[in-house]
Design a protein around this nucleic acid. Structure first.
Length: 859
RNA sequence: GGGCGGCUAGCUCAGUCGGGAGAGCGCCAGCUUGACAUGCUGGAGGUCGUAGGUUCGAUCCCUGCGCCGCCCACCA
């Protein structure tokens, strides 16, 4: 074995062997209990980033752990076509080449997309292999493959026939650049500082029941409204005030006149108006504002659309503004208002402006014909499933993210006006019959007409993603996989797509499969750049997981991910911690090397008799570690699992057991060899879900026949807990550490010196203490020597100063502690109310501290 | 505007019955120790954001406040 572990030389070979052995291929006919995970399909927009790596590492812990605990595991991979995101990527590429999708046409565009899907899809899969993800690539799915298309169409038709999918003109979030509607969840709100304009709208005299001059604080018969988007006033069809607002009550039912346009605007009263905001009067633009749309609907106001899909003004009757981009139109409107004396005020105003989360363009609320999915019943099903406890969230607080969103949910706009995606399976025949069809229809089912036109829109990507846990298993066909592996067991997701994706999978599963799609949801923390900013390619803060794998190994990356990814806060990318796990892999490598160097070919076992205290101690600690690691996996708190193995393997096994057992190992002592091998055996199994490569490598180097680790049973405690051995070795460690401390403080050389113990330790521990502390045990107190505090005894070094300076720090520490303990025991409340064991413990500490201080009391 | 999370050593983070504050990295000092210098030994370093409250006892429970971050939200 080489003296250093080289992950780059070891990892790739193992993945090939695993795949060749079919370890990750799930068998639906297996008699074992099932455990399944549908990998969140990465968007085919680029390569995997750290978020994917962390996400995959967590799933792989479960996948491997469940295999080792006797389950038939399916971890199913795939990719998502990500219609709007991918289209934007290709559009950017075309722009760099100086062309556009319109110029090259649909066919050439489609060809480019196909090529892109192939290339990126391959890269993504190879990246998962590098990470060691135990995915069943024989079942790899894509949200646009043939079977998946059928699933999407089936789901659509199902909702359509229930009457839950409807089409209609509604106000939507419109992206003028993508030229598509997007859903509420795809709106990214950003803070803007704009000007808030106050504008006079003259009131038509005598139009209201009672007319008095001067509403809005001015002297004329007018209202003053406030807006940050003056250009939209060209589409105003009303003015609204709050019904309880005394200032305006007399005007309700009357009319105002729209400046620059001249249209008569009904003045209506509506609860939605905030009387406190501005002057309390609101211009109503149902065609370009969601709130106004609602108000307009309630009062039967006209809807005027004043914008083209590309964001330019569409006001043919007002040629001075027609065709202008919105911002230019705004300037001109403001100029004209000012010139006409309508502009009262313009002041800076900070507010939230919606942007397209895919391309960043400012959204324009606009009225258009879209497909909507009714959410009331679907939301109710989710809430009921939650109430029944069918989905368990980890950490639990995220359940509220989902329930809160459902509580206020509105219908889902599922249509998009893109070139990419699943076409909506709705057709209109020459006679105007409209129908939905799972199969590509030949003719109209009503009249037999063959002139069919399919709806030009495509579906929101999330509509297809929502079917992922069952569409990937073959739904709508009744497949063996579907029966064996649905519902899946676990979904691991970053929290930013809880509602976009997780929620929608839950209601889709409930509605289409009759069961929740997974029992557990694990939300992993977001990885931030070292400076706390988001990791993103465009900011230059991204980190390529392949680079990390190259430098530290996939194991190191994964162990770090498992240790931090369930953190309650976002975690900053910290390379020093990843490097720490690379060193840990190297430590294991060398510990194994050490143990193996003295072994014969036959595997040693732990003998029934002849175990020393150190053997009993490490086996006891091992049992404890097995229990801890297992509990923390089951609790979704991987931090605890990783730390427990790390601490045990490095600090208990390597630092103390191996150091102490070296002479026995060299001498071929069967107990030491059996115990050391047994510890390695168990540690490698415990660590395998977290660090699969190095553990597999070392496992196969242990003597005896070794199957692949995922086929080896997960360790169970062996009933070796041994409080007596733990206490004895605890005393040994304290003693050795104190002698070392004294040596260093006394400025003595590294080795040599005499140790005398007044109350002897167990003989084997006493001689060990001598070896580990590099001193000779002597039968009488060395003079002058340094008194020890942990045990009654003295130590002397060949060239050492007096003991007194050595004790100063120790004494100070002990005295501080003693003072605290004394104060506590002097408190009557403590003695009366604290539980007896706690009081006893304090009394014990008092005695210990006093004894320790007495031992090092200056003469 | 509502909600959630965070504030613990120089840095990144653990700390899940309230009872002696931890790790990794960094720092200081010393080690060619028969597995490992990707190592070994020893050490320094924290009034656990802040002000109150509950309690015999609070990093932990409650309340207020201050920053930082995220999510939701139809005040134009």
């Amino acid at each position: 074995m080489a003296t250093a572990y080289d992950p780059g030389a070891v990892e790739p070979g193992w993945y090939e062997r695993w795949e060749a052995a079919g370890l990750f291929r799930a068998d639906p006919r297996s008699p074992k209990p099932r455990y399944s995970i549908a990998l969140p399909p990465p968007n085919v927009t680029g390569e995997l980033h750290m978020g994917h790596a962390v996400n995959a590492a967590l799933q792989d812990v479960w996948a491997r752990y469940r295999r080792m605990t006797g389950y038939e595991v399916l971890w199913l991979p795939g990719t998502d076509h990500a219609a709007i995101a991918t289209q934007n990527v290709i559009e950017r590429q075309l722009a760099e080449e100086g062309t556009t999708k319109e110029r090259i046409g649909r066919e050439a565009f489609q060809a480019r997309v196909e090529r892109w899907y192939r290339e990126v899809g391959q890269t993504i899969i190879s990246q998962f292999r590098e990470l060691g993800a135990s995915l069943d690539f024989s079942r790899t799915r894509f949200t646009m493959d043939r079977g998946y298309v059928r699933a999407v169409r089936t789901a659509f038709v199902h909702y359509y026939e229930k009457g839950w999918l409807y089409r209609g003109p509604r106000i939507v979030n419109w992206c003028p650049r993508c030229q598509s509607a997007i859903s509420d969840l795809e709106v990214e709100w950003r803070e803007h500082t704009d000007l808030l304009y106050s504008i006079r709208y003259p009131v038509v005299p005598g139009s209201a029941a009672v007319s008095t001059p001067g509403p809005g604080g001015g002297e004329g018969p007018w209202l003053v409204i406030a807006t940050v988007r003056p250009e939209t006033m060209l589409a105003d069809t009303g003015v609204a005030v709050h019904p309880g607002d005394e200032r305006y009550r007399h005007l309700v039912g009357g009319y105002a006149v729209l400046p620059l346009v001249g249209r008569r605007l009904p003045i209506v009263a509506d609860e939605a108006v905030e009387p406190e905001f501005g002057t309390g009067a609101l211009k109503v633009t149902p065609g370009h504002d969601p709130l106004d749309w609602e108000i307009g609907r309630r009062h039967g106001l006209a809807v005027v659309g004043a914008m083209h899909p590309d964001g330019r003004m569409n006001v043919p009757d007002l040629p001075e503004y027609d065709g202008l981009p919105a911002l230019e139109a705004r300037e001109r409107v403001v100029r004209d208002l000012r010139a006409g004396g309508y502009l009262v005020d313009a002041r800076p105003y900070v507010h939230q402006v919606g942007h397209c989360d895919r391309c960043g363009t400012v959204l324009e609320p606009m009225v258009s014909e879209q497909w909507w999915l009714r959410m009331d019943e679907l939301a109710r099903r989710c809430q009921e499933a939650s109430a029944r406890g069918e989905v368990r969230w980890h950490p639990p607080r995220f359940e509220r993210t989902y329930l809160d969103w459902l509580a206020g949910i509105r219908d889902w706009c599922v249509s998009r006006q893109l070139w990419l995606g699943h076409r909506i399976p709705v057709y209109t025949c020459g006679n105007g019959h409209v129908f939905a069809s799972v199969e590509e229809p030949e003719r109209c089912p009503t009249c037999g007409d063959g002139m069919l036109a399919q709806d030009p829109d495509v579906l929101d990507t999330w509509f297809s993603s929502a079917l992922w846990p069952f569409a990937t298993l073959g739904w709508p066909e009744d497949t063996e996989d579907l029966r064996a592996f649905y519902p899946t067991s676990l979904n691991v997701t970053a929290r930013d797509i809880i509602n976009l994706w997780v929620t929608r999978m839950i209601f889709s599963g409930l509605e289409l499969m009759g069961e929740v799609p997974f029992g557990d949801v694990m939300i992993n923390a977001t990885v931030l750049a070292p400076d706390g900013r988001r990791m993103s390619k465009s900011l230059g803060t991204g980190v390529d997981p392949r680079e990390i794998v190259r430098r530290y190994g996939a194991d190191a990356l994964r162990a770090w991910a498992a240790q931090v990814a369930m953190s309650s806060q976002d975690v900053r990318y910290d390379e020093t911690r990843i490097e720490g796990f690379r060193r840990f892999a190297n430590k294991l490598w060398n510990a194994t090397r050490r143990v193996l160097s003295d072994l014969e070919d036959t595997p040693p076992s732990v003998p029934e008799t002849g175990l020393g205290l150190m053997d009993r101690w490490i086996l006891s600690r091992l049992d404890h570690t097995v229990a801890t690691v297992t509990e923390h996996i089951e609790d979704f708190t991987f931090t605890g699992s990783v730390s427990a193995i790390y601490d045990f393997a490095w600090h208990e096994f390597c630092d103390w057991y191996l150091e102490a057992a070296k002479p026995r190992l060299r001498a071929g002592d069967p107990a030491a060899q059996g115990v050391a091998t047994q510890v390695l055996d168990v540690v490698l199994r415990l660590l395998h879900p977290f660090m699969p490569f190095v553990t597999e490598e070392l496992w196969h180097r242990l003597p005896g026949e070794r199957d692949f680790l995922v086929r080896v049973p997960w360790p169970r405690p062996m009933g070796r807990r041994d409080p007596e051995a733990e206490a004895a070795v605890g005393r040994l460690i304290a003693l050795v550490e104190e002698v070392r401390r004294a040596r260093q403080a006394a400025g003595a050389p590294r080795r040599g010196g005499s140790l005398w113990l007044e109350e002897p330790l167990e003989p084997e521990l006493a001689s060990l203490a001598g070896e580990l502390a590099a001193v000779e045990l002597v039968a009488s107190a060395p003079e002058p020597g340094i008194a020890l505090s942990q045990v009654a005894g003295r130590v002397a070094f060949p060239t050492a100063g007096p003991g007194e300076p050595v004790h100063r720090a120790t004494r100070r520490r002990l005295e501080q502690e003693l003072e605290r303990v004394r104060a506590r025991l002097a408190n009557p409340g403590f003695l009366e109310r604290a539980p007896a064991p706690v009081v006893e413990k304090e009394r014990g500490r008092l005695a210990e501290l006093e004894a320790a201080l007495e031992r090092i009391r200056p003469a």
